[in-house]
């Protein structure tokens, strides 16, 4: 099984391409692959629990999908940590670097 890192920089309401990316992540997960989804920039708009984004809800239910959000992007947009999904880890750039450099993990900027 492979390991993937998707760095999602775009708002899910900005383009269908973001939702297509969520679907791809789900398909990879269903095939048994381990996926990290790291939300950054406007990608963190998906992190609010009240965001109407059922595709992300589905990803958060999966054991082999791990979702993180960039702390600076969260703060920059005034998103309260309490309003973020409990399954999303708000973390720093060092975490993104660790996943990017992790042996065998394929990084994809989206």
């Amino acid at each position: 099984m492979s390991k993937y890192l998707f760095i999602e920089s775009r708002d899910p309401f900005e383009t269908n391409d973001v939702r297509d990316c969520y679907h791809l992540i789900k398909d990879l997960s269903d095939s048994g692959h381990d996926v990290v989804l790291f939300l950054v920039q406007n990608g963190v708009f998906a992190a609010r629990k009240k965001c109407k984004n059922s595709e992300l809800d589905e990803l958060l239910k999966k054991e082999n999908i791990h979702v993180y959000a960039d702390d600076y992007s969260i703060d920059e947009r005034g998103i309260n940590k309490e309003s973020v999904y409990s399954q999303i880890n708000v973390t720093g750039m060092d975490t993104l670097v660790d996943f990017t450099m992790e042996d065998g993990r394929k990084p994809i900027w989206h």
């Binding site: 920089s9 950054v40 920039q41 960039d70 600076y72 720093g92 750039m93 060092d94 993104l96 670097v97 990017t100 450099m101």
Partner: peptide, 9 residues
Amino acid sequence: TVFRMIDST
């Protein structure tokens, strides 16, 4: 973001 990421790397 890329400047932040390279700095951290």
